[in-house]
Design a protein around this nucleic acid. Structure first.
Lengths: 204, 204
DNA sequence: CGTGGCATTGATGTAATTCAAAAGACGTGG
DNA sequence: CCACGTCTTTTGAATTACATCAATGCCACG
């Protein structure tokens, strides 16, 4: 079943029963949680090819919402896919490996979130998207999400995200075509900042 | 193959080839990463019954070290277990569900690490261990790891962990039998602090 | 009875949040 | 096309929470 959705449309809400597994065809989405006081935390961004909304529980732990215009999503009935996973070795193996990859990604994300400073987190985010989004093959990145989304993904204030991006721009590590399109000029430095978070220690 | 290990023994190192999958029988261990400047980040604590060291990659992304005296670990040859996963539906399903659970745990952890304040993180940690470690059935918790381990798990300074625990003790949310054994007196407040992180807003 | 690792506490510095506001994007309708 | 309102992004000033530095207390172990 194919869905065509617009920005801020919800694909499912936290607490909904898990009836389908979803796959992004075009566009982008965010998987997020809300706390009682209205704060939001983004757990993952979904891009074309990403499978989501599957898991051990009977109900969704998170909400998933569209962030890019004219996003299309495919729904697979959950039961059928689970049955297929149990009968077909190939499908089963595929799902298992997909789950393992998700685990590695989440562990890496845990490291990023946990350890580092604001500049390091934003650097890590840009590098992550340079890898995921590679559309031109070059260092050009397009960010489908707002600064608020990035802030909630990296667990920092919007202002801090903006400042970090400005800092990177001033140091000529990145350049902007416009607010949502940028290019990495100095990947080496970006990788360095991701690890250290310290802008001073230039001496390699 | 059964291993008996002592505190600080390494079960495997980051970069080692993945030859086995491991299962904790008794004791405890920590899965951690190190950055070039020597800082450490703990990704997960392993307790009896936890399977670890499996994944998509050919080499381990993390190191795993023992934290409790006389810890015993079982090793399963990786190839055999993977073959079993492909031939036996039950095993396959079991592993898949185990992976899904790991994903949910990691996502939850992401939320904890990401959003909240020091007090909230320590509260979340205590509640997590109250659930995992339930040995007496009561609210008694024994922490096999040092404050340094907790700090690296929650991505904060040791001193901050200590201060948070002291704050909780002074507010009579927890009491200590000794440094590594404590009891939760006021679970309600602990759950509240985990969500809000704000010690002021007592008005429910 | 000393020694060394772990734990707590205090004083100080700093980086990120918060509060506040201006400038830029974007769409709508006159 | 321009004026208008709204939302996003950026920048500045002030505050705050955490990290860092430094010192002391606490146990276990030899």
């Amino acid at each position: 079943m194919l869905l065509r959705l617009e920005v801020n449309d919800a694909i499912y809400h936290c607490g909904d029963p898990v009836l389908y597994w979803h796959l992004v065809i075009t566009g982008a989405a965010r998987k997020c949680a809300f706390s009682w006081d209205g704060r939001r935390q983004i757990v993952d961004f979904l891009l074309p090819g990403d499978l989501f909304g599957f898991g051990a529980h009977e109900v969704h732990c998170f909400s998933t919402e569209v962030i890019a215009p004219k996003t299309s999503i495919v729904r697979y009935p959950r039961g059928a896919l689970e049955q297929l996973a149990e009968s077909d070795r190939e499908v089963s193996k595929c799902i298992r490996e997909l789950a393992f990859e998700a685990i590695v990604r989440l562990q890496t994300r845990t490291l990023i979130l946990g350890r580092t400073s604001a500049l390091a987190r934003v650097s890590a985010f840009l590098l992550e998207w340079a890898d995921r989004g590679r559309e031109g093959g070059g260092a050009a990145i397009s960010l489908p999400m707002s600064r608020y989304d990035i802030a909630d993904y990296l667990a920092m204030a919007v202002e801090t995200v903006s400042r970090a991006l400005t800092a990177l721009r001033l140091r000529q590590v990145i350049t902007f075509r416009n607010t949502r399109h940028l290019t990495i000029c100095d990947r080496r430095t970006l990788e360095f900042l991701r690890e250290s978070g310290d802008e001073e220690a230039e001496a390699v």
